[in-house]
Design a protein around this nucleic acid. Structure first.
Lengths: 203, 203
DNA sequence: CACAGCTCATGACAAACGTCATGGGATGAG
DNA sequence: CTCATCCCATGACGTTTGTCATGAGCTGTG
């Protein structure tokens, strides 16, 4: 029997600890390291060279996907997987693009998670069926690069003047992009557009 | 030794299961029921009459605080406590007003949580020191009831006309409230005001 | 090469929004 | 009772927006 060396990264101590305890019950899994932040996860991975890194999507410092990206470069043999509370379609896409092998919502049971870790370790992929369906039905972002960028700058309710300055664009151009983005998303105004784009993980 | 009967409510199966397993290690605690949604938590509580209800703040159906409110009315002997990932000051306030005995971020360890459950069962309260400090420094909401209501309706980027209709107010009145709210919060416009109010848990 | 698509800009117009002054009715504290 | 505060409204003003037309430079594809 091969044992799988696992790295666990989650900023919530309660969950990380509990998870470690549950995974320890599976006798072919061993948690070799834990981390509470993105950078820490990276450091721990380099130090302990786990077979599989289980990364929370939302962590301080660097999110799961960017950790996965770094990991892919620095530790190619380590498979990565993402667990998350909020299963936005866009996140799934970003994750897969970063070479993540599994994308799992926290609504699964520990036993299922253990199974998925084995699946990933065996070289296969796993994506939660429901999330996959959402991602497919949500489709690709219709926004161009600049539209997305400007929309993101508009996210905190800043006036056009400020967005224009931060993006080094003229105010007119910003309004054009905002208008285009809103109409592509079927939103009444840029603020609603921001909400929609967020929901679909396009920002 | 008295044993404490605990209800566990969290929509994330992974966490709920893991938590149950960890609490089971404490021999004076016994998890008598689990729930994944607000209404389910309520039903389980009525059926199993636990000593302490550990409620996640964000759950489908009804959030932790409203469950606690119902519980207070229907099962006064049951102490309630809230665990949450996002410790917004306003939530803490709402929770305490609802008679919740403890408010804990998920960054604590399972051992600490067990201790807090005992504290609560003994009739005492517990509030995470950091959250308490935030809540105090954030202060009370300066918004009047209507201002908060209108601000909430503005949350999804709806135009004034729609807000006015939904609140049964004139458009002028809505704009006045929005303007007042934004200036009280020091925001540039209503959208930024919504963000700020959300951050502080005032909506 | 021609064509399509993205990028950036300008100008102009209508609609939406923020702000202010003003006032009447309700309510609660002193 | 009086005063402050909130609630609701109206009208008016200037500003910020969304939208549209138009055009120029750039890039990649067929």
């Amino acid at each position: 029997m091969t044992t799988v060396r696992v790295l666990l990264a989650d900023d919530e101590h309660l969950i990380r600890g509990a998870l470690a305890a549950l995974l320890a019950l599976e006798d072919d899994l061993v948690v070799v390291a834990e981390a509470a932040t993105g950078p820490e996860a990276l450091a721990m991975a380099l130090a302990h060279r786990p077979d599989v890194a289980v990364l929370d999507l939302e962590m301080p410092g660097a999110d799961g996907v960017s950790v996965a990206t770094s990991l892919r470069a620095e530790l190619p043999d380590c498979r990565t997987m993402i667990v998350t509370s909020h299963g936005l379609p866009g996140h799934l896409k970003r994750a897969l693009a970063a070479g993540v092998r599994a994308f799992v919502p926290k609504t699964v049971s520990a036993r299922q998670l253990a199974g998925i870790i084995r699946t990933v370790h065996a070289g296969n992929r796993y994506v939660d069926p429901e999330l996959a369906a959402d991602a497919i039905s949500a489709g690709d972002s219709p926004l161009t690069a600049r539209e997305a960028e400007v929309l993101e700058l508009a996210a905190d309710g800043a006036p056009v003047a400020e967005i224009a300055e931060r993006a080094s664009l003229s105010q007119g151009t910003v309004r054009n992009y905002l208008s285009a983005a809103a109409s592509k998303l079927g939103a009444e105004n840029r603020h609603a557009a921001v909400r929609l784009a967020r929901q679909r993980g396009w920002v």
